[in-house]
Computed example of a mutant assay.
Amino acid sequence: MAQHTPPAPRICPVCDGFATVAVTLGGRDPRGHLRTLTAHCPACQGTGTTPARRLREGAGA
């Protein structure tokens, strides 16, 4: 019997699927931990995928 494979999620064209990054601020805090800042992709809000085209354009289902 054939197995059905779900379609691959649509990867965000802005971040290419790397939706969240940690940027070092340089230096360490008094406890020795590296100081970082988390940044999310503004297009996909950190999910790495985009909704289907019809949903993005506002067309009804």
Rank of each mutant, 00 (worst) to 15 (best):
C15E: 11
V14R: 09
R31N: 11
T5K: 14
L55F: 06
L37V: 09
Q45Y: 08
D16P: 02
R53H: 06
A43P: 02
R28H: 12
E57N: 02
A8K: 08
L37P: 00
I11N: 05
M1D: 07
G48C: 08
L34V: 15
T24H: 11
P13A: 01
R28V: 10
A19N: 07
A61S: 10
L25I: 05
Q45M: 03
T5W: 01
L34W: 10
P9V: 13
D29V: 05
T5G: 05
C41A: 04
G60D: 12
V23R: 13
A22R: 14
P6Q: 14
T5P: 02
I11M: 06
T36G: 02
Q45L: 08
E57H: 04
P30F: 03
T50K: 08
R54T: 01
G27H: 11
H33W: 13
C15D: 08
A43Y: 06
F18I: 12
M1C: 04
P9R: 05
G27Q: 14
T49K: 07
C44Y: 00
T36F: 04
R56N: 03
A61V: 06
T24I: 13
T5N: 03
V21S: 15
F18G: 03
R54C: 04
D29Y: 02
P9C: 09
Q45V: 03
I11Q: 02
C15H: 02
L37F: 15
A19I: 03
P9W: 03
H4A: 14
C15G: 00
V21R: 15
D16T: 04
L55M: 13
H33K: 15
G32L: 09
T36D: 01
Q3M: 09
L55I: 07
A43T: 14
T38S: 10
Q45K: 05
H33L: 13
R31H: 08
G27T: 09
G46L: 03
V21N: 10
G58Q: 10
R54E: 13
Q3T: 05
Q3F: 06
G17F: 00
L55C: 04
C44D: 00
L34S: 11
R53Q: 02
G27I: 12
D16M: 02
F18R: 12
R35C: 15
P30L: 12
T47P: 01
E57R: 10
A52G: 05
L25V: 06
G32V: 07
H4N: 14
V23A: 13
T47G: 04
H33N: 15
P42K: 12
C15P: 01
G17N: 05
G27D: 13
E57K: 02
H40Y: 14
P13T: 00
G27K: 08
L55R: 14
T38F: 08
A52I: 01
G32S: 09
P42Y: 05
Q3D: 07
R56T: 10
D29P: 03
V21G: 09
V23Y: 10
H33A: 11
D16Q: 10
T50V: 13
T50I: 12
M1H: 06
R35Y: 08
G17L: 00
L25P: 04
T47L: 08
A52Y: 05
